[in-house]
Nucleic acid binder design. Structure first.
Lengths: 120, 120
DNA sequence: CGCATATTCAACCAACTGGTTGACGATGCC
DNA sequence: GGCATCGTCAACCAGTTGGTTGAATATGCG
């Protein structure tokens, strides 16, 4: 796993982690706040954040007793360039991006709120 | 794993699979020829190709007794757009792409040829 | 100090991954 | 027909992943 593209692509392969990144697009967040919308333990989220940090996609900075998570989009540059080399995709279609965020955003399967009884 | 970005990102997380994709950038290839430069069994490569096909990144077409693998770069469009939304990276830096191919290309750790004794 | 909050650590578990080998089915060729 | 080649399948294995819970650490606050 010596290749620099590996950790980024595998970090991005998990929908929970992608959701976290889109949350951080809004603003820096404390670990507890990152965890809040998800239906899993704080420890699990903590591990996800470690994966993202190892990939360089976020940095965690301790201030007082809370750890702030900050998006580090530069880590995506390499993988992004790599992919663009294949497809010659047109640059930065922000509308398309919005649709993706909408489609998979934190509101999707992951949040506690949307997990009522399956049948209604 | 219902999200369409998942299979593509996880397919791309493996260096062997990325190497295969860059090989297919040159030209369509038969499974046996894809496997040739790698130091692993044909069955292993066959599985990698299945992962790539499931992600939509290649198609496999049987002609006679050989199965031809063809790159399907359109499958990268979604993930590429998703990533560009984060970084606002400048479009299609082909030089940078060349450097990546160079750096991780099939000549790297994966080929049989480059696997002499570790110390020299 | 003593308690509450924020986060990680450690042990554990089930499921998935990436590889192996050997057998198998399908096709082409003499 | 008989043999070689192409590729997948099935069973197996070790290591990794994504989650859990409970204890531990670190900081802030009255």
């Amino acid at each position: 796993m010596t290749n620099p593209l590996d950790p980024v692509f595998s970090a991005l392969a998990d929908p929970t982690r992608r959701a976290i990144l889109t949350m951080l697009l809004e603003d820096d967040m404390a670990v507890t706040d990152v965890a809040e919308p998800f239906a899993m333990s704080l420890a699990a989220i903590s591990k996800h954040l470690a994966v993202l940090a190892d990939a360089g996609l976020i940095v965690r900075e301790k201030r007082g007793r809370v750890i702030w998570c900050k998006l580090e989009p530069d880590a995506m540059r390499g993988p992004s360039v790599w992919m663009q080399g294949f497809g010659q995709f047109e640059p930065v279609d922000l509308d398309a991006f919005e649709r993706f965020i909408e489609a998979e955003g934190i509101g999707a399967d992951f949040s506690k709120e949307n997990r009522g009884p399956d049948l209604d």
